[in-house]
Design a protein around this nucleic acid. Structure first.
Lengths: 214, 214
DNA sequence: TCCAACACCCTACTCCAGTAGGGTTCCGTG
DNA sequence: CACGGAACCCTACTGGAGTAGGGTGTTGGA
């Protein structure tokens, strides 16, 4: 291939990074999409001579490293399109990444469809900052909501239960799978609902649509 | 023609049936691929003297007719390879179709690539029962293929109700939105569940995860 | 004209989800 | 040691989901 489109994806959750990379490969026509999960790896994977067409950067890297990374990236590889992603919709985040010079911003929760359109827009040379328009029907997004169970403020057990809830399993089956009583499962479910600000399991499933635990 | 490979495809959603038939013609080297959408049509199209090489049978035919059809087919045309397809990944379905004597089983959501490989395996005389693995690498990508209500065999009203169900709305709100009684909504929901072969709305949501209506 | 399908409404029932309020162990921290 | 938190179990209750079985009115095809 003379002109394969390539991408670099950095997210501190490796599964998240590789999920996005896979999506770029399978649905956005990328020939190369390398997932990395820390900053060192990122710079190591970057070839300054032949920079990637796109870099996808999670905003919530440890120590707030993403802003510095984005600015440096803009200097070193101005030809590379920069797409920032984040798990929350704080308006301040949007301003910060804009200042850092990114070309687009997206929520992690956005549908694959929109993600694909944002990528296409960036490759065309357009920008993508439609993040603010979301805001309908997501009352539990005021805090950071990363992909892993522990970072949702859930205990390990609650994480296991949540994973099965998202598969659509009823309490009785979750109980059997974990060798618990149905009542105990209900307690965990109640804890999850309270934590996530949902009224019932259906709200949990629809709001976390397209995500996976751990 | 002396030796064209022929197939019969039965699915109660005509669009689905003809889509599969087209694929067999264009990608699997079939000379004939006849789509039918009900059991009567199926037997009418079947030529016992010169049986097709392959029969593709949707598991969720109305009234659960598929099991009987599969068994009868196995008796009458033992030379015809039988491929069962289903929209859900219930393990019980897999057991049932195996008991009925099919040669292969697949999810409808499977990629065309895998579908093609399954067909090739069957024509070679091999079996294909990889349903359990359910392709781990695509939670982010999956399918944003919009599905129309008609494609699922639903009435217009059921389509509207389903759209709201997928958003996580409870019956009462759907009723208010459509200016109906809650009871009527329940009727539509029951119809949807029967049509899609689901036990409750949670199964519907998890099975159609990531898809859009119309 | 009759019948089937669809949309609509109702009561009454069962079953599951989720809450409330009681309790027990175990473990880590002040 | 005493306390809090997590995990575990229980009964008893409310409310929504879904089924069963009754009904009406409209439409379109045999």
């Amino acid at each position: 291939m003379t002109n394969t489109t390539s991408a670099l994806v950095i997210d501190d959750h490796p599964l998240s990074a590789s999920g996005i990379a896979d999506f770029l490969l399978s649905h956005c026509g990328f020939g190369v999409a390398l997932p990395v999960s820390d900053v060192g790896e990122f710079w190591a994977a970057l070839d300054p001579v032949n920079p990637p067409s796109l870099a996808v950067v999670d905003f919530w890297l440890p120590d707030g490293a993403s802003l510095g990374l984005l600015e440096l990236m803009k200097q070193r590889c101005p030809a590379t399109r920069l797409l920032a992603i984040s798990a929350d919709d704080n308006a301040a985040v949007l301003d910060k990444v804009r200042m850092a010079g990114v070309d687009g911003f997206l929520h992690k929760q956005e549908t694959p469809d929109i993600f694909g359109r944002a990528v296409a827009a960036l490759l065309q040379g357009d920008n993508w900052f439609h993040g603010g328009t979301q805001s309908a029907g997501r009352e539990f997004a005021n805090k950071e909501l990363p992909v892993t169970a522990a970072e949702l403020g859930l205990t390990a057990r609650q994480g296991q239960v949540l994973a099965m809830m998202l598969k659509g399993l009823p309490n009785k089956r979750i109980a059997l799978n974990l060798s618990l009583s149905e009542q105990t499962v209900k307690e965990h479910v109640s804890g999850i609902l309270e934590r996530l600000g949902a009224r019932n399991r259906i709200e949990v499933i629809t709001k976390l649509r397209g995500r996976r635990l751990e």
